[in-house]
């Protein structure tokens, strides 16, 4: 909880700063846009959180998005598959990718970094191959399906505000993920193996199976996000869709309290971390800061936040120790 508090404070500070400098930051339109983007990117963060908890990493997320988006566009617009079968097919594809990663990492004992780095290249190449490297648009034929992303769901008891549909998709995923991690024995197994895989194995936990599950989850969630991104943009560019999104996901997860050493991670933290990144991008536009400054600003704000968090933690630890010493 304390880890989340730090990042949450930083989020609030950035929001406050932006709102003071341009009150239009607080308009419902802008708020809901930020919620929509946070929801879309949040799905990726939740996925990578599972992998990071096991002490692994997934660098292929962006390429999985690209491949899934491209495959969806090809199946729908060129092969004219029905919507349910096309969606099922791309989800099976992303699950197969996750299983493939898991098998290589557990059975062949390859390093997750290497496996998923190769995946990053492989799936991007496949996406460009199946589309002949052409951008594909959905046109106006899939407006019904697109409601999944661009639709708005009115909140009960409020006539003015309706939340973007992806919010509910992500909320459902986050809820299931949080329950899985905190309330089931498998969530405990994941955390145990992330901290000490051998000790978990010695306790009778099938660590390989749990790791496979983590990579499977990560890729399937990347696949779901891939579908949503493709629909949101209404067109896909096989070489660019999802590029670098794994870094946003990993950054959000780490900001939200996941330790790259494994064993730690909180779904709420990941969502707040994602929100922070999206708000920073939004703030740069809202405050009319030149776009070429964005990386410098985002890097600086995050670094400042992490440093402050660490200093506050040390200060608190020192004070607690002093109090304990005084009490004894």
């Amino acid at each position: 909880m304390k880890k989340i508090l730090g990042i949450f404070t930083l989020l609030m500070v950035v929001c406050l700063f932006t709102a003071i400098n341009n009150p239009r930051f607080l308009t419902p339109y802008n708020f809901l846009n930020t919620v929509r983007w946070t929801s879309l990117f949040g799905i990726l963060g939740i996925g990578v959180c599972f992998v990071i908890i096991t002490g692994g990493i997934d660098l292929s997320i962006g390429s999985v998005i690209g491949l899934v988006g491209s495959a969806l566009a090809v199946l729908l617009t060129q092969k004219h598959w029905s919507i349910p079968s096309a969606i099922l097919a791309v989800l099976v594809l992303s699950a197969a990718i996750g299983l493939f990663h898991g098998l290589l990492i557990t059975r062949l004992q390859l390093q997750p970094f290497v496996v998923t780095l190769c995946g990053l290249l492989l799936y991007r190449g496949l996406a460009r191959y199946i589309t002949d490297d052409q951008s594909l648009g959905f046109g106006a034929d899939y407006e019904g399906l697109r409601l999944l992303v661009v639709g708005k769901v009115p909140i009960p008891f409020s006539s003015t505000i309706s939340l973007p549909a992806p919010f509910f998709v992500t909320a459902a995923i986050a809820l299931i993920a949080a329950i899985f991690l905190n309330k089931t024995i498998y969530g405990r197994y994941l955390q145990a193996l992330g901290r000490n895989e051998l000790a978990a194995k010695y306790s009778g936990i099938n660590t390989d199976r749990m790791k496979m599950l983590a990579y499977l989850t990560c890729s399937v969630l990347a696949g779901i996000a891939g579908i949503l991104f493709a629909l949101d943009l209404n067109s896909i560019q096989p070489s660019g869709l999802g590029e670098f999104y794994e870094l946003y996901a990993i950054a959000a997860a780490v900001l939200g309290g996941c330790s790259l050493r494994g064993g730690e991670g909180s779904i709420l933290g990941v969502l707040i971390g994602t929100a922070l990144l999206r708000v920073l991008y939004n703030a740069i536009n809202i405050l009319n800061i030149p776009t070429h400054m964005e990386f410098a600003i985002i890097g600086a704000v995050i670094l400042a936040g992490v440093i402050t968090d660490e200093l506050v933690k040390r200060f608190a630890a020192k004070r607690r120790a002093a109090q304990a010493a005084a009490a004894s």
Binding site: Q191, A192, R195, N196, L198, A199, A200, Y202, G263
Partner: peptide, 9 residues
């Protein structure tokens, strides 16, 4: 420490 326990838990 390496095999019997998960020290951080």
């Amino acid at each position: 420490k390496q095999l019997g326990l998960i020290l951080e838990m």
